[in-house]
């Protein structure tokens, strides 16, 4: 499986975050994982990065390749976050892959998520789900060339 530079987890469920981080570690997927508990904090975080408003030395700040977004969250839920996120700089967004990660398999939620044209994964997140997501959005050969 191809390695990623960084993953942003937006979810208020700590246990779920713990399990997902553990999964990433076991898969050796990436070293940088940032966890934020709601859409509001996540948006502020991404806004600052898109404007380069951050300490380049800090390991806490990085531009993620992949964002996994919960739907039901306090303060600002996944859909509200998406409405704001789509206003961010186009170029900045073009290099980020987004996916909803929700417990809900309710058709209303799935229907509502369709307008954002991003992946919809149901919890629990498994190694299979991760590998298929990555193989779809992060082709192996492209990035290996500049690195070598």
């Amino acid at each position: 499986m191809k390695k990623l530079d960084g993953i942003l987890l937006i979810d208020d469920d700590e246990t779920n975050n713990f399990l997902n981080q553990r999964l990433f570690a076991r898969l050796g997927l990436c070293s940088k994982v940032k966890v934020l508990p709601n859409g509001n904090q996540a948006f502020n975080y991404l806004y600052n990065i898109s404007r380069n408003n951050y300490d380049l030395q800090s390991p806490e700040y990085f531009r993620p390749d992949l964002i996994l977004l919960d739907v039901n969250m306090p303060v600002m839920d996944g859909f509200e976050f998406m409405d704001l996120y789509e206003k961010l700089d186009n170029d900045f967004r073009s290099r980020i892959v987004l996916a909803f990660l929700s417990t809900s398999s309710h058709p209303l939620d799935i229907e509502k998520s369709k307008k954002y044209r991003i992946e919809y994964l149901t919890k629990p997140l498994t190694a299979e789900k991760m590998s298929s997501l990555i193989s779809r959005h992060f082709p192996e050969e492209k990035q290996s060339i500049p690195n070598s």
Partner: peptide, 12 residues
């Protein structure tokens, strides 16, 4: 919905 999240977690 609300039962699902903790159950998924317990499974994990």
């Amino acid at each position: 919905n609300d039962l699902k999240a903790p159950i998924v977690n317990i499974e994990g």
